[in-house]
Design a protein around this nucleic acid. Structure first.
Lengths: 152, 152
DNA sequence: TTATATAGTTAAGCACGCTTAAATAAAAAG
DNA sequence: CTTTTTATTTAAGCGTGCTTAACTATATAA
């Protein structure tokens, strides 16, 4: 019981710290590209989950299909997205990141996470190993948890 | 060298996972309160760094003083912020979170991090301990790093 | 004291994201 | 072969955040 509480506290303390640092880099980069937060989020999502249609964007971001369509259109015109007809269903569109879009996301990720590289410098080798192991554990735990949630 | 790269990769993998989960909870909560992202951010910042004036808001969020003033005014009218005259400088204002503001932030934090509690359930006791230890290490490492940055 | 700099507010106007409503086109159901 | 549902787009209109410009009030410097 005490373990659980302590665990949560530690997790949250780290997340607070991380969030603060990471958000700074993120919003700074978004601003420098001229993209808005929703636009950037759509690109991120395409990058992580692969090509999809307008309706999926609409669902994932909890906005109307109209909003999704307009947002996507701007990204297409900016050259970050390709919008093709879905060969399986001619009503639907298939959205994919363009080469420029991939580059942008890579740079953004790099920018957002660069500060974390410096973290390695203030940790000893053993500490780095411990942290590595623990985070791998955590990452797998999230996957496991989501698998469970899908079932129920 | 290889250690460093591996370390960064692990760190980033976890952060990607975390960001995705945490952002969902965050934007969901912000929407449910009727507050916009900038408004919520201001409250968060006040909560973490304590009372300050308009100019500090303006600097921290990189917007004009006019924008900061307008944003703050809405939060004051909504009852989340108190705006008093700074006794030390009668031109300046002193912004503090109201009781309602504090409650809101506490709830928001709770909401945003609740999913992490479930993480504990899919980890063994030993794993939880390892993770706890590692995250404490990381949190301290960030503090150390920021102390160093301030010097240089 | 007078001049200048600083803290904050207010108003006008622009861009953006979002919604609803109406329209088109293709798939699925009857 | 209709009828209905689904996927997307377009247009009109609203609220918000942001900027610039003009203004008030206080503090600081000459």
């Amino acid at each position: 019981m005490i373990k659980h509480t302590q665990f949560s506290k530690t997790l949250r303390a780290w997340m607070d710290t991380f969030m603060h640092r990471s958000m700074r880099g993120w919003s700074h980069f978004a601003k420098s590209t001229g993209l808005s937060m929703p636009q950037f989020s759509i690109l991120m999502q395409l990058h992580h989950k692969g090509p999809c249609g307008i309706s999926e964007i609409s669902e994932r971001f909890d906005v109307t299909a109209a909003a999704a369509s307009q947002l996507v259109d701007k990204l297409v015109q900016a050259g970050y997205l390709e919008r093709a007809e879905d060969p399986a269903d001619r009503r639907a569109k298939l959205l994919t990141l363009s080469a420029a879009g991939e580059v942008l996301i890579s740079q953004g990720t790099e920018e957002r996470y660069r500060w974390m590289d410096d973290l390695a410098l203030v940790l000893s080798v053993e500490e780095r190993e411990k942290v590595s192991e623990a985070l791998t554990l955590l990452t797998h735990a999230v996957e496991k948890m989501e698998a469970q949630n899908r079932k129920s």
